[in-house]
């Protein structure tokens, strides 16, 4: 039987892997965007100590390979009493790692924003969290949209690394089909094309968001 026909006969496994990849990437993106948005004001804060700690955290994550972090969370942390199952470990590592990148992306966009709307917001009596949520964040997200899209693609690709901690995502499904049925080419090429499809979807969403942002101006 042809390799692709075998993959088709195993489509239930392949699709559940794809669904898990989508869930992981979606949860990972949303949670790290949220945490990143909380971390950004700390990064640009004038208070030295918290800003210093936040900066070191971002630098540490930027210099660590994601796979090593996943290993540390899954195999290393249990020895100090923190035990996760593979979903918990995978999501924790994914969010911890990418929230640093999201914070850095939002910080970059923040620095490029004009001061005037913030001054106007202050003059209208906005302050603290309300100022950040209503005045600072919306144009920030619109300006950073394409870069956040790139990071989402990065998260989709990072989620494939979690196959090493036996998380049943797309690459894991392809591996399991190839090891039982000996059809490496068909199994992995189908996975590659599914990843490609996901990334093209993200790119389309970014383009759509950009048009929306232009229409608002």
């Amino acid at each position: 039987m042809n390799g692709f026909a075998i993959v088709w006969s195993e489509r239930a496994l392949m699709l559940s892997g794809l669904a898990n990849t989508v869930v992981l990437s979606l949860l990972g993106t949303l949670a790290s965007l949220l945490l990143g948005a909380l971390l950004t004001p700390v990064l640009v804060s004038r208070r030295r100590a918290p800003a210093f700690v936040a900066l070191r955290f971002v630098d540490l994550m930027r210099c660590t390979p994601f796979l090593l972090l996943a290993y540390i969370v899954y195999y290393g942390l249990p020895s100090i009493g923190l035990r996760f199952d593979n979903w918990g470990a995978g999501l924790f590592a994914l969010v911890l790692y990418n929230s640093a990148y999201m914070a850095e992306i939002l910080r970059g966009a923040w620095m490029a924003q004009p001061r005037e709307p913030i001054e106007a917001g202050l003059a209208f009596g906005y302050s603290g969290l309300r100022l950040f949520r209503r005045i600072v964040l919306p144009p920030l997200l619109l300006a950073a949209g394409p870069v956040i899209g790139n990071q989402t693609i990065q998260i989709i690709k990072d989620s494939a690394f979690l196959t090493i901690i036996a998380l049943p995502e797309l690459t894991h499904a392809a591996s399991s089909i190839q090891s039982r049925r000996y059809i490496p080419f068909a199994a992995f090429i189908v996975a590659v094309f599914l990843y490609w499809g996901l990334c093209l979807l993200v790119e389309a969403a970014v383009a759509f968001g950009k048009r929306l942002a232009e229409a608002r101006q």
Binding site: I153, S159, T171, P184, F188, I189, V192, Y195, W196
Partner: peptide, 17 residues
């Protein structure tokens, strides 16, 4: 295509296929 492919999937494809 290559920008969308995770390296782990790519290296498995290359090694086994």
């Amino acid at each position: 295509l290559l920008r969308a492919t995770p390296l782990v999937t790519l290296v498995l494809l290359v090694f086994f296929a």
